[in-house]
Design a protein around this nucleic acid. Sequence first.
DNA 1: GATGAATGAGGGTTCATTCAT
DNA 2: AATGAATGAACCCTCATTCAT
Lengths: 191, 191, 191, 191
Amino acid sequence: MNIRSAKDSKSNILNAALKAFSEHGYSGANMRMIANNANMSVGGIYLYFRNKEDLCLTLLKERLDELSEKMERAVEGVNNPAEAIGKVIKINLEYARKHREIILAQNRDKGFAFGIDVKKKFFRKQRKLVEKIIKEGVRTGDFFECNVAEVTKIVIAVLRGFVLSILLEPDGFFSVKGCCEFALRGLLRSV
Amino acid sequence: MNIRSAKDSKSNILNAALKAFSEHGYSGANMRMIANNANMSVGGIYLYFRNKEDLCLTLLKERLDELSEKMERAVEGVNNPAEAIGKVIKINLEYARKHREIILAQNRDKGFAFGIDVKKKFFRKQRKLVEKIIKEGVRTGDFFECNVAEVTKIVIAVLRGFVLSILLEPDGFFSVKGCCEFALRGLLRSV
Amino acid sequence: MNIRSAKDSKSNILNAALKAFSEHGYSGANMRMIANNANMSVGGIYLYFRNKEDLCLTLLKERLDELSEKMERAVEGVNNPAEAIGKVIKINLEYARKHREIILAQNRDKGFAFGIDVKKKFFRKQRKLVEKIIKEGVRTGDFFECNVAEVTKIVIAVLRGFVLSILLEPDGFFSVKGCCEFALRGLLRSV
Amino acid sequence: MNIRSAKDSKSNILNAALKAFSEHGYSGANMRMIANNANMSVGGIYLYFRNKEDLCLTLLKERLDELSEKMERAVEGVNNPAEAIGKVIKINLEYARKHREIILAQNRDKGFAFGIDVKKKFFRKQRKLVEKIIKEGVRTGDFFECNVAEVTKIVIAVLRGFVLSILLEPDGFFSVKGCCEFALRGLLRSV
DNA sequence: GATGAATGAGGGTTCATTCAT
DNA sequence: AATGAATGAACCCTCATTCAT
C-alpha cells in the first residue's frame, strides 16, 4: 500500500512471520496468514524470500546473531571468570524468557534439525566464549583443574538445560541466582 | 499377511512408524510410508490406531514409561544420595544416546507441545524421584542446605541439558562421569 | 453366536440395517455398524446380501410390499368408492407417520432414484387400486365424469403430497379427516 | 484461465457443480469432477466455497429464492383468489419440470434434511403466500368457510404432491389445468 | 514492485468388500 | 456358516508456490 523500501518490506514480513509462527508453529502458520499480518499479498512475500523455509531461517538467524552479540558484549571487560559465567547464564535465561514463543515456534513442527547450520554456527561461537572463560578460570586458579574441552561442553549443556526448562515451564520458579550458584558449586557440601 | 495376531500387528506398525518418524519427522512421514514399512495397507493401520497422532503418541508414551521405570529401578535400594543422582544422570544419558532418533522425531515437526500430557506425567514422576533424593541428601548432610524445590528444578534442568546436548551432538565427547562430577561439584574450587 | 436358521439371520440383519439406516441415513450408516447391531461379523452380512445396496433395497421392498398389501386389504369388500378413497388415504398417512424414519432414510443419501424398480412396481399397484376405485365411483355416479387416468394420477399425486408433508413436518397438525374431505370434494358430485 | 472475475468464477463453478450433482447426485459427484467441468483446479473451488456442502447449499438457495420470487410476482395484483391459487400451482409445476434434475440432485444422497434451514425459510414464505390467498378467498366468499391454517397446510401438501409426481414421473401426462381444477373443487364454494 | 487467483500434488482418513481361517 | 483383519481406491481438503496482470 505504502511506498516502502525493500528493507522495510523485508522486516515487515519478518515481523508478520514471527507473529504467525509464534502463534501457530511452523507448519500451522501458512503463507496467507503471514501475508495478512504483513498487509501484503501472498505473492509479495516471494519477492523477498525464496520460500517459507527461507523466511523462518532468516528469523532464526537474526535471533541467534542478536543473542551471540549480547553474550559477547556482556562478558567484555569482565575479569572475574565466575562473574563471566554468571553473565552468560543470565543473558541466556533472560533471552529464553523474552523470546520463548519464537524459540518454541522454531522448534515446533520442524525440530532441532531445522536450520541446523545457523544453529551450529551459534553453538560454535557460544562454545568458544565459554571455553575462553573456563580456560581463564583454570589459569587464575578460580576453577578446578579439568579437561577444559569437556567441561565447556558440560557447562553449555547445563546452560541449555536451563533454557529448555524455561521454555517448557515458563511460569515455574526458576531464579537466575539459583542457576548460577548451582553451576558454580554443584550439590556436594565437601569435596 | 493377515496371519498376525493383533498384538503383533500393533507392534509391527509401531516399529514401522518409528522408522518413518525417525527418518522424516512427524509431518514428513506419511501414512502410506508407514504402511509400506509395515508391509500393510494404509487402512490396516487405522484398525489399530485412531489416527496419525494417536500412533505417534503411543510411541512417545511407550518410551517415556520405559524410561520412568528404568530410573525408578536404578535408584531402588541405593542409600548414598550422590550415587543416586549419578544413577539418574547415567540412565538418562544412556537412554538419550540409545533412542536419539526417536526422541528427535517426536519433537521434530510437532515440538514440545506434542503429547504434552504424556510428557507432563513423565516430568512429574521424574521430579518426585529427584526431589526425594535431594531431600534425603540434605537430611544426611551429604548435600548443602538449600531450597529443595528449586534445586530439584535446577538439577532436572541440568539433566535436560545433558540429554539435549546428546541429542544435538551425538558424536561429541560427553562422559557420564564428567556430567555427574559437574552436577555434584560445580566449577569453583572453593566456596 | 446362536445357531440360527438362514431366515432368522436374514431378518436379524434387516432389523439391524433398519436401525442403522434410520439413525444415520444410507451413506452415514456403515457395514460395521450394521454388523454390530446384528451381533454379527461384517463378513457375515455378505453371506446373505450381495452388498450394501442389496440390503437397503430388500428393506425397501419389504416395506412397500407390506403397504401394498395393507391398502389392498383395507379396500376389500368396501363398496362405497368415497369410503374406499378415504381408507387409502388413511392407510398411507398412518403408514408415513409410523415408518417416517425408515422412509426418510431410504431417500436420504440416495434419493428418489434409489430402488426405482421396486418403487415403480409399488406405484403401479397403487395406481391400479386407485384407478379401480375411481372408475367404480364414476360408474356408480358417486364421482364426477372425468378422465379417469388423469384424475387417478392427480389423486395419487395428492396422496403423495400428504405423505411428503408428514415426512417433512411430522409434528404439524394434519388430520386424516381434513385430507379426505379435501380430496373428496375434488371427486364427489355432491357433498 | 485465471482471467475471470471473481463473480464469473463463482457462477462458473456453480454451473459445473449443477451439472455434476444433476448427473451423479450429491455424493456421487466429487470435487475433481466439478473442477473438470469448470475447467479449473480442485483448489480453485475452495477459493469460492468453503466446502462441498457449501457449494451445494448455495445452489439450493439460489433455486429456492428464485422460485419464491416467481411465486410472489405471479400473484401480485391478482384479485381473484381462485386465479391466484391457480397461478401458484402453475408456477410450481413449471418450475419442477424445468429444474427437475437439480431438485432431484439436491435430495439424492442427502435427502430432505440437507439444507433444512434454507428449505424451511422457503416453506415459510410459501405458506404465508398461500395462507393469505385462502384467507382472502374465505373473506370474499369464493372459498368455503374453513380452518384456514389447516387448509393451507393441505393445499401446500397437495402442491408438493404435484411437484413430487412430476419429479418421479416426468413424462407422465399431468396437466396444470387438471391439477388446478381438482385443487379448486376442494376450495370453491360453487363450481 | 505488487497482486491474488489459480494450481495440483499430496495430505489424512474412510469404508465397502474380500478371503484365509 | 461365520469371522474380522486386511485391503486399497477414493474421498475431501490444504497450501506452498507460480504467474498473468
